[in-house]
């Protein structure tokens, strides 16, 4: 099976690292295949950034994401740019304080919001919002295992920041678990 994931947001939000951790968890720690492609262009802090991750049981041929099964957006611009590409019945994971899903969603889309920035601020550093998102992704999509995601976070963050990042991961994971256990999810 092949699953396509697009992570979009602003330069500086850790969009690429978010995609990197998902890919690393899948390919190094879950033993699947994963390909990460980063959008290269005149990207800078504050401008658009996006990562494409394909996760599959078989080796991956075509490397780009065309119609994501999962769209993770951390900014309104990323939502506007990428929501038309989301597959019917796909999942939208969004930063719920920054993005407002609307009629542009494809039919049957699963919509899952998390106030990732706020949760990160509660931990003391807004910077870790991308890791909150990784936790949320892990809990809601189940594409990567909890153990693999946790290891990939530890393997990817700067030394000395492991504890903070793990807290961020757990916060996002817990929020996602509450959501998928039926309290607050809705279908567009």
């Amino acid at each position: 099976m092949r699953t396509e994931i697009r992570v979009g947001g602003l330069g500086g939000q850790g969009v690429i690292l978010c995609g990197m951790i998902i890919g690393k968890a899948a390919s190094i720690f879950d033993g699947k295949h994963a390909t990460l492609i980063q959008a290269f262009g005149p990207e800078a802090r504050g401008s658009a950034a996006s990562a494409q991750v394909t996760v599959a049981d078989e080796p991956i041929g075509y490397p780009y994401v065309r119609r994501p099964d999962v769209l993770v957006v951390m900014s309104p611009d990323a939502y506007t740019t990428f929501v038309p590409t989301l597959k019917e019945g796909g999942s939208l994971l969004y930063e719920s304080d920054l993005v407002v899903p609307d009629k542009r969603l494809p039919t049957g889309a699963k919509v899952l919001g998390v106030p990732a920035t706020r949760l990160a601020e509660e931990l003391g550093r807004r910077l870790v919002m991308n890791i909150v998102m990784v936790g949320f992704f892990t809990a809601t999509t189940k594409l990567i295992s909890y153990e693999a995601a946790r290891k990939a976070v530890l393997d990817s963050v700067p030394r000395g920041t492991e504890e903070l990042n793990l807290k961020a991961f757990e916060a996002g994971f817990a929020y996602g678990q509450r959501l998928v256990s039926g309290e607050d999810s809705r279908v567009a």
Partner: peptide, 10 residues
């Protein structure tokens, strides 16, 4: 090529 150079895999 650019894709092979910039693509990340195991």
């Amino acid at each position: 090529d650019e894709v092979v150079g910039h693509m990340t895999e195991r």
